[in-house]
Computed example of a mutant assay.
Amino acid sequence: MDLFSALLSTGDDEYLSRGERRAIRALLADDPITPQARAAVRRQLIDAVGKRVRDPRDRKLITWLGDVLALIDADAGSSSSPEARAWFGPDDGLADILVTSLAAAQESIDAAVFTITDDRVAGTLLARHRSGVRVRILTDNDKAWDKGSDIRRLAAQGIPVVMDHTPHHFHHKFAVLDGRRLLNGSYNWTRSGDRYNHENLMLTTDPRLVGKYVKAFEEMWVELGPPQVL
C-alpha cells in the first residue's frame, strides 16, 4: 500500500490511533520519501479532507488531518535542510518578494490576510488563478469594504473568499504556497506596508512549520466558511 492510501485509511473513523501511528512510522522508516513526495502526499490529504467536510461544525476531520500531517512531517530528515529567509521593510522591497513568490506557485495559494490593497499583489493572485492554480483567500470582513480593497474584485473573478464575520479582526498575514512553502510576517499586503512601514516577511520550507499553518488555514476555512459572494 502506498503512503497516501495508508494515511487515508486511518481517517475512516476520523481518529489516528496509536497502532496506526506505529504502522505509519514503520512504513516511513522502511521506505523514506523525498520532500517533494511528502509535499504531494500532504496536498492529496488536504484535498481528500476538503471533499469530505460539509458541516462547519465538523472539526474531527481537521484534527485527524493535522495529526497525520504532523506524523509525516516528523519523518523529515536532516539531509535536506529547509529553506529559511527573512526580509525587512521598507528597505528590502517586500512587495517584490511577495509577488515573485506568489508567481512561482504551481499548484495552490492559500492566503490568510488582513487586507489586500496593492494592485500588484492582487494582479498576481488573479493571474495564478487564471492559469489554473487553486487560490483561496481568508480575510477580514470590515477591511474588505475599505476604499481601494482588492478583495471584492478577486472574488468577482472567481477566487473563493471566506471572510471573518466575528466581532474581532482577522489579523493574519500569511500564505502557504503549493502546500510546502510558507510566507509569514507583519507585512500587510498594501502599498504603504511596502513603501513606508517597518515590517518583516519570512519564507520557510520547514515541513513542521508549514504543516501547522496548513492545518490552521483548513480549520479557519471550515469554521468561517463557506466562501461568500461579494
Rank of each mutant, 00 (worst) to 15 (best):
A37H: 06
A84H: 09
V68T: 07
L69H: 15
A84L: 11
L27Y: 01
A48H: 11
W87T: 01
W87I: 01
E83V: 03
A26R: 11
K60G: 01
L28Q: 00
P35F: 08
V49T: 06
S80W: 00
I72H: 15
D47C: 02
R42P: 00
A39D: 02
R54K: 11
S79A: 14
L45P: 01
G89C: 04
G50I: 09
V53T: 15
S78C: 10
L69N: 15
T63D: 13
D91H: 14
P82C: 08
I62N: 02
A86P: 01
D67N: 12
D67G: 04
V68L: 07
D58Q: 13
D58A: 09
A29T: 09
A48I: 07
D75F: 15
W87D: 00
G50Q: 09
K60A: 11
D31P: 00
R52W: 15
A70Q: 09
S79V: 08
S81W: 14
I33P: 01
A76K: 05
R57V: 02
I72A: 07
A40L: 06
A74G: 12
R21K: 13
I62E: 04
R38A: 06
A86R: 15
A48G: 03
D47P: 00
P56M: 13
G50C: 10
A26K: 10
L71Q: 09
D47G: 05
A76L: 05
R57Q: 14
L61V: 05
A70L: 08
L61N: 15
W64C: 00
D30A: 15
P32E: 13
W64Q: 02
I46L: 11
R21G: 02
L27V: 02
A39C: 04
F88S: 03
G93A: 13
D92T: 04
P90L: 10
V41E: 07
A40Q: 03
V41R: 11
